[in-house]
Nucleic acid binder design. Sequence first.
DNA 1: CGCCAACCCTCAGTACACAGATCATCTGGA
DNA 2: TCCAGATGATCTGTGTACTGAGGGTTGGCG
Lengths: 162, 162
Amino acid sequence: MTHAKAKSAPGHVYPAEDLNQHPGHLIRRAQQALNAAWAEKVSKTISSPQFAVMNALLADPELDQRTVGERVDIDRSTMADLVARLTARGLLEWTRDSADGRRKKIRLTPKGCALLQEIIPRTRTMTGHLVRALSPSEEAELRRLLRLVVTAHDASTSSTDQ
Amino acid sequence: MTHAKAKSAPGHVYPAEDLNQHPGHLIRRAQQALNAAWAEKVSKTISSPQFAVMNALLADPELDQRTVGERVDIDRSTMADLVARLTARGLLEWTRDSADGRRKKIRLTPKGCALLQEIIPRTRTMTGHLVRALSPSEEAELRRLLRLVVTAHDASTSSTDQ
DNA sequence: CGCCAACCCTCAGTACACAGATCATCTGGA
DNA sequence: TCCAGATGATCTGTGTACTGAGGGTTGGCG
């Protein structure tokens, strides 16, 4: 206590922060609310990242794993695990890209496609539940502000990296 | 394939959703931005949940594990792991509550306290970086909207549970 | 043509998150 | 007093997330 190595004035001590004023803390708690709402209103067996992957394959029926990961913002390692799980459950299948043997092309199975169709409308119900305390214009504003945050982050990591 | 058990009109197929219109997806991506900003601006060895726990102990020097978990919204199982890790690193210590042998009272060690003091100002820098694309009023609005979301979730789980 | 850097994927290790089962302790009612 | 239910903590299992290391493939450059 007596002689901390900090260069600030001795005796100065920061009080505890109020985490409710920290956007970061609120973002973490919001994701907990999301996961709870998802399990309650959408599915207990398909998670929201798994849905994001399957949904991307509905828009583009055959993509390589890396491209899907980029589109839905899932890490390459996480994608490998996630695809392995969905494949083991018969919801996804894959083939090696004949033009480029490094690439794994993934697509929905009929079973995966049918399950996705059941889930899509429920995701909208879930969203309505998640943001039930917000007016429609507030919900739009929340989306806009979150997009600004993630876009700024993307901009600083995509090109030039560091 | 021929006779799906869905009760909707045959031939109706949902198209892929635009995930950028889903607040849930944006919340997940925002948390990824948070974690990246945290690692860059605050600490690579103390995570934001770990900080939340230590910060709670700065406000209230000795609390039982469960109370801390409730205050910072961390699950009991996750708390057990997290406290074990911080204790192993000498940042936290604990004793059994003499009045109730089930409770584990945790507190910061001097080392944990010193580290926390270094970290607190950096969390503010990190927040500034995370929301750098937002004006001050937009940041306040983001906090307000996120609080509405998490408060609604708390209200539906705390009392009456179910 | 051959080699090497770039690229895609996988794996090991670490950490958060949560449900469900288990164990110990506490407490209130018979 | 003693037992049953509630409560605090742990453990197991699953899933998301990311880093760093490693292996196979490709493609461009000398």
